[in-house]
């Protein structure tokens, strides 16, 4: 069995974000593998280690620097990596275009049985690209999974819902997206970092995967930081008095009731 994991390079969640000229400034920003994608990579490697798969391949869409994110996945234990890029893809937020490209690359990488990814990328919180690609490919998808078993041509996945737990089965090939309870991603050891240097990393153009990206179905018209938090007010005192004071403030000051 072959597992494909799609990943995205994002900025660290700790990064101090600044907007510069309509884009997020990369000044002083460290780029990492999207943390949810790390869970997917870890799961793929675990499946391979337990004999459930022969090969783990990682795929990303991104400029040259995204190659470093792929190298990290190779150092964690993936066998090969693919990066698709075309300068026309640099437009922000073109999720539908990315989904088309991803589907094209996944088509070219066939045969594979399992497609894994993080359930969302921490930068744009869209949770849409790989899901749309799976739809294009016509495969079932099980999203935001906390536990995963693979065998007998199917996946059995556990999804934590609000107050209950759902167990889902789907035939392979299928897409499964990872939530954070799925596992604890390993950090690459130094010998594996050095080995990753010699693993294959292929770069594809749109021509290589036979895809015409087309134009996005929508355009981003603005990008702004959330307004600075204004000072919160803590209402003190005994619960009964505080409740009265709070209601009063909501009425007279915040004017919401």
């Amino acid at each position: 069995m072959k597992i494909v994991v799609t990943i995205k390079q994002t900025f660290t969640t700790e990064a101090k974000i600044a907007v510069d000229g309509g884009a997020i400034s990369d000044k002083g920003i460290k780029q990492i593998v999207n943390p949810y994608d790390e869970f997917a990579v870890e799961q793929a490697i675990k499946i391979k280690e337990s004999g459930g798969a022969e090969e783990v391949v990682v795929l990303t869409i991104g400029p040259e620097r995204a190659g470093e994110a792929l190298r990290q996945c190779l150092a964690m234990g993936a066998d090969a990596a693919f990066r698709v890029w075309d300068d026309s893809l640099a437009a922000p937020g073109a999720w539908d275009v990315y989904a088309t490209v991803l589907a094209g690359a996944l088509e070219k990488m066939k045969p594979w049985e399992l497609l894994l990814a993080g359930w969302v990328a921490v930068d744009d919180n869209a949770a849409i690209v790989v899901q749309r690609a799976a739809e294009t490919l016509g495969i079932p998808q099980v999203l935001v999974v906390n536990k995963l078993d693979v065998g007998d041509g199917k996946v059995t996945a556990v999804r934590e819902m609000d107050g209950y737990r759902e167990v889902v089965e789907a035939p392979l090939p299928a897409l499964v997206t990872a939530d954070k309870a799925l596992n604890t991603p390993r950090y690459p050891t130094l010998p594996n970092i050095m080995k990753a240097k010699r693993k294959p990393l292929t770069v594809w153009t749109l021509e290589d995967i036979g895809v015409t990206a087309g134009s996005a179905g929508f355009t981003r018209t603005g990008l702004a930081l959330p307004p600075a938090k204004t000072g919160a007010k803590i209402v003190e005192g005994e619960p009964e008095e505080a409740a009265v004071a709070l209601a009063d403030l909501l009425h007279t000051e915040a004017k919401v009731i």
Binding site: I32, R71, Q72, Y187, L190, I193, M194
Partner: peptide, 17 residues
């Protein structure tokens, strides 16, 4: 190098975890 930066990340993750 990219490997040296990855090594730093690994050590940092080890320290944190």
């Amino acid at each position: 190098t990219a490997e040296q930066r990855m090594l730093r990340d690994t050590v940092r993750k080890f320290v944190d975890a």
